[in-house]
Amino acid sequence: MSPAPGSGPDVWRLPNPTDVNDGTVTIITAPAGGATSVFGSDMARVLDDHTNVRVLPVLGKGPVRNVSDILFLKSIDMGAVAADVPEFYRLQYGIPDITSQLRYIARLYHNEIHVIARSSIRSIFDLNGKRIIAPTDVGFYSARVIFNRLGMTASFDYATDDAKSIQKLIDGEADAYIVSTGKVFQLARNIRNENRALHLVTIPYDRRLQDLYLPTTLASEEYPNLLNPGETIETVAIGMLLVSYNWPENTERYRKVARFVEAFFANFDEFMKPPRHPKWRESSIVATIPGWKRFKAADDWLVARNMTPRPQVADVQQQQFETFVRQSGGQLSSDPAERSALFRQFLQWRQQHGGPPTPTR
């Protein structure tokens, strides 16, 4: 027997057209398969309550194009943007402060910078003047910023297809391939590298990168085809942000995004639970991002709950200390005195060198 019209769960009831439009927000992510598109799907599932908020993820091109889509597409409310994209806009387009038109809501996760090159290349500094393949939407922007900050030049191939780009590297048509993406990057992990001609290249945590990037590592467990067993290399990571246009407070678009912020922040803990993407553990609603201003409704929500913003320097120190501990043997001692001594050693090294330390044993 068929149910009577209008009966059954609320999800099957026809929505009120006004409510649907009032509560729906769009978030432009990135091509399917990456962490950003999964984050959009997760937000749609967790926050969709059928009455107050509905999230519609939209597949985009990547962080650089997402900025222009947020600024100019009438149907886009928010998008995923890497924290180094504004510097790319300044270098590439001569736009000094694109963030004046944008506001960030939260840090979603970290993109690790992957540099894959032939075994003769030991560090990113060996790529000065070389031929680099950097995918237009998921690699070139970070490569441009990093090379400029390090005083390096390169001949860039602005590829649009990751798989074809990697094949060019394999065929010897470039010296390195650079991409900014969350690990584990499956295309890289799937490279057939039986002769070990290719490997992942170190990016040291140079002082010139430290105000924007975070220190991190790539390990053989993540890329057994590109690193030797037990090998770990240093690289840097950049925050992927959830970003909105800087809507005036008295506008309907501001109110829609503010309604989303209320639901997102109130349900933030739900994103830490399985089976959500594991990179949600890197997300933060309190992180302060250098060079960016927070969306006012997000700032108001945190202030009302006495939630103290966390500066990026705290994230840097924590990640450096975790690297230090791993290099010391992989575990923190349960003895408070030993823990304190290890942390003092870490701070002394950091004060002297400004980068991830190598502990004494």
Results as ranks from 00 to 15, higher is better:
Ala266Met: 09
Asn128Gln: 02
Arg118Cys: 05
Arg122Asn: 15
Thr26Tyr: 00
Trp280Gly: 09
Thr216Leu: 03
Glu282Tyr: 05
Pro224His: 10
Leu302Thr: 09
Arg118Pro: 02
Asp49Leu: 13
Gly23Tyr: 01
Ser220Ile: 01
Arg326Tyr: 13
Ser333Lys: 02
Ile113Arg: 04
Asn195Tyr: 06
Ala197Lys: 11
Val81Tyr: 08
His353Met: 06
Glu173Gln: 09
Ser283Trp: 08
Leu342Ile: 03
Gln327Ser: 13
Thr202Ser: 13
Arg122Ile: 06
Leu169Ala: 09
Arg65Gln: 15
Ser244Phe: 09
Gln331Lys: 15
Gly182Gln: 08
Pro311Gly: 02
Arg259Pro: 04
Ile146Val: 11
Pro15Ala: 14
Asn148Phe: 07
Phe321Arg: 00
Arg149Glu: 06
Gln167Ile: 09
Thr36Leu: 07
Leu241Val: 04
Tyr205Asp: 01
Leu342Val: 05
Ala297Arg: 02
Ala304Leu: 10
Ile113Trp: 04
Thr18Leu: 05
Leu242Thr: 01
Pro9Asp: 11
Gln352Met: 04
Pro96Asn: 13
Thr235Val: 12
Val243Tyr: 04
Phe324Ala: 05
Gly230Pro: 07
Asp299Ala: 14
Gly355Cys: 09
Ala154Lys: 11
Gln320Leu: 12
Ala287Gln: 14
Asp22Cys: 12
Val25Gly: 00
Arg103Ile: 12
Gln319Leu: 15
Ser142Glu: 13
Gly40His: 05
Gln348Gly: 14
Ile132Asn: 00
Arg276Lys: 07
Met1Cys: 06
Ser220Gln: 03
Leu200Ile: 06
Asp269Thr: 04
Ser340Lys: 15
Pro357His: 07
Ala304Gly: 09
Ala44Pro: 03
Ala197Val: 10
Ser333His: 05
Phe88Gln: 05
Gln186Arg: 14
Arg90Met: 14
Asp299Arg: 09
Val138Thr: 10
Trp301Asn: 08
Val325Pro: 07
Tyr158Cys: 11
Ala44Tyr: 03
His110Gly: 06
Leu187Pro: 04
Met240Ala: 11
Thr36Pro: 00
Arg131Cys: 05
Pro15Leu: 12
Arg326Pro: 02
Asn246Trp: 07
Tyr213Glu: 01
Ser2Cys: 01
Gly62Lys: 00
